[in-house]
Amino acid sequence: MSSQFAISTRDLEKDYGEVKALRGLSLDIGAGQFFGLLGPNGAGKTTFINVLIGLVKKTGGDARVFGFDVEDEYRDVRSRVGVAPQEFNVDRFFPVREVLMHNAGYHGVTKEEAAERADEALRTVGIYEKRDTKFTYLSGGMKRRFVLARALVSEPDLLILDEPTAGVDVELRRALWRIITDLNDDGTTILLTTHYIEEAEQLCDEVAIMDSGRKIAVASPAELTQRGTDTLRIQLSETPREVPDIVGTELEAGSIEAVTTEGREVVVTAKRANAVAPELVRRLDRAGYRATSIDIEPASLEEVFVDLTGGEDESEDDAPESESKRLESPEATT
């Protein structure tokens, strides 16, 4: 059976007693995509992955990998999936090369080919010289590399990476990015969960934002960024005595969220700052203010993420609101 989707779920539910980890999650991830799954802790990302690979039994709904049902056709699913989990779950009795050989063997690879694949995977992630070392004795970064090697040794069509760069230094993170980008270029579908928004922004074709077991949004990073609010800074020739009342009804409804002042600057947060900037400058001019420069800071995926998930970053909640006019709606400002 083949499917245009590497992963397809409908109304996927998972309850742990009273706790609902997944609440009717429907998601399609195309074959060959580099797909990111973002969400705060407890969003249900790892549960979602574990349902796909058979470590957790779903409570309801449907989940398929390359068209195969994850429970009824579990062997077809598992033969196509490689997983690098967030928590280390490696056999510590054997040197890492042997662990890879065993894992290749579990996937039906002959002993001879398993040895070749193990060596190749270790070279790919750059720890071949540690092949005779047990997992316990690898450094943290090497352990991260190893779990990726283990996911690769079965040559999967779908590679699932659950926080693969958590706690690794910048150099290793970029090395891991290169490896998985190359794999994706060669046709492997990648499902990446990450806390590093920058990682999703740089690597993923499409991302889904999850919160409390639900899908909040699915789009490309660029599309999601457009949903965020840009920051427009208009430098005035002199410091205004009060926040200028420059928001008119003729401006696109809902596009401006707040107007504040910071010294000689008027700071406007708006959905599409470049679209409203000319009109705002004209309004300032009519109000007697002269703009000397304009700077637009586009929204980041991180800001969109925080907006959509209610904000994980406490510093956001602690931000002072002095000198700001928080706008509930455009009408409220007019």
Partner: peptide, 17 residues
């Protein structure tokens, strides 16, 4: 021990019946 150290997941996620 496999459950304790989680490495039994290597078997659980393999295409074995």
């Amino acid at each position: 021990h496999g459950r304790w150290e989680d490495y039994i997941e290597e078997i659980q996620t393999a295409p074995l019946t």
